Computed example of a mutant assay.
Amino acid sequence: MIRLTSKTKGLSREEKRTRMMEIFLVTKEVFQLKDIEKIAPKTKGITPMSVKEVLQSLVDDNMVDCERVGTSNYYWAFPSKALHARKRRLEELDEQHTKEKQRKMSLQLAVDKAKVGREETEERASLLKELQALREKRSLLKTQLEKYRECDPEVIEEMRKSNGTAKEAVSRWTDNVFAIKSWAKRKFGFDDGRIDKAFGIPEDFDYMD
């Protein structure tokens, strides 16, 4: 016979599971969902809204068996079944704990290994200072190298070629401007001053030397 238990508010999920398992283990009977929905709230203080969810969690963990017959589901759990399920669960948790422990040890070894050679010693401080000085010297040499590079014959030759190309382009545009001015004078009879003013051409506009 099921012993009545006073209703308790705020039961945890695990407490609900434990109390529901007591229904099966004490009675050793087979129930339908509607039976559990009546018994669990009255005798175990499990809220009606959570009965189905708690029962399904026990089925999912293989602590309660479920079989569909016709249109109804039947639930049962005998002591041997529950004992076997708990034993398997404990083995899983123990295995998980062992793996986590090994992982923690591996991480600790990795941390300890990473610390080797990084202890604060006078020698390490001196080496770090020397390294910083070398970095600063390298930066200074790089800056000086960029300055001296301006005198590099290859760089000068490249600049000369670029200047020559630019000068040729300017000369072509100068030819075009003078050609347009010549055409405008013939076509409209404008003098140079009027044309220069109209097109914004400087008075000293001429070919580059």
Rank of each mutant, 00 (worst) to 15 (best):
R19Q: 10
L107T: 07
Q144G: 06
P41D: 02
L140T: 11
I36S: 00
F199E: 07
G70E: 05
E91H: 10
E95M: 09
K161R: 15
I2D: 07
K137V: 03
G45Q: 03
M21A: 07
V170P: 01
P79H: 03
I195E: 02
M49C: 09
S6K: 12
S106K: 15
E53R: 10
C151K: 15
A114C: 07
N62F: 04
R118T: 10
M208P: 08
R19T: 04
T5P: 00
E14L: 14
A40R: 00
M49E: 12
S80F: 05
V177Q: 05
V155I: 14
E146M: 15
R13W: 06
R86G: 08
Q132R: 15
T143M: 11
F24G: 01
I180S: 11
A125D: 11
Y75G: 01
K187L: 09
R19I: 05
A179I: 06
S106R: 15
V64F: 01
L33M: 08
F190E: 05
K137G: 04
L128S: 08
D112E: 15
D35Q: 04
E37H: 01
D175R: 12
Q144P: 00
R138E: 07
D175C: 11
K181A: 14
R149F: 05
I36N: 00
S126C: 06
F31V: 01
D65P: 01
W183A: 15
D65G: 03
A114P: 01
D204A: 10
I2G: 04
L4G: 08
G10S: 11
T43V: 08
E37V: 01
G45M: 04
E154Q: 14
R186S: 12
K197I: 10
Q144C: 05
T47D: 13
L128T: 07
E122H: 08
N163P: 01
P202M: 09
S126D: 11
R89A: 13
I36H: 00
L134V: 11
M20A: 03
M159Y: 10
V30Q: 05
S171M: 12
R138F: 04
I2K: 10
A198F: 13
K7T: 15
L83P: 00
K16I: 02
D204V: 05
E158W: 07
G164H: 13
F31N: 00
F205M: 13
E146G: 13
M21G: 02
T98A: 14
R13Y: 05
C66F: 02
K101G: 06
T71H: 10
F205D: 11
E136R: 12
S50A: 09
G200H: 08
K81V: 03
T27Y: 02
V30I: 10
R149S: 09
R160Y: 11
T27W: 02
L55I: 04
C66H: 03
M1H: 07
L128C: 09
R13N: 10
A77E: 00
L131P: 00
E158T: 14
T8I: 14
Y207K: 09
K87H: 08
V155Q: 13
K87D: 06
K113P: 00
E130H: 11
F178N: 02
L127C: 06
H97M: 06
H84R: 13
V51I: 07
V59Q: 04
G189M: 05
V155R: 14
T8Q: 14
L90V: 08
G189Q: 06
M49D: 13
R186K: 15
R194T: 12
E29D: 08
M63C: 07
K185N: 05
Q32P: 00
E136Q: 12
W183K: 15
L131G: 08
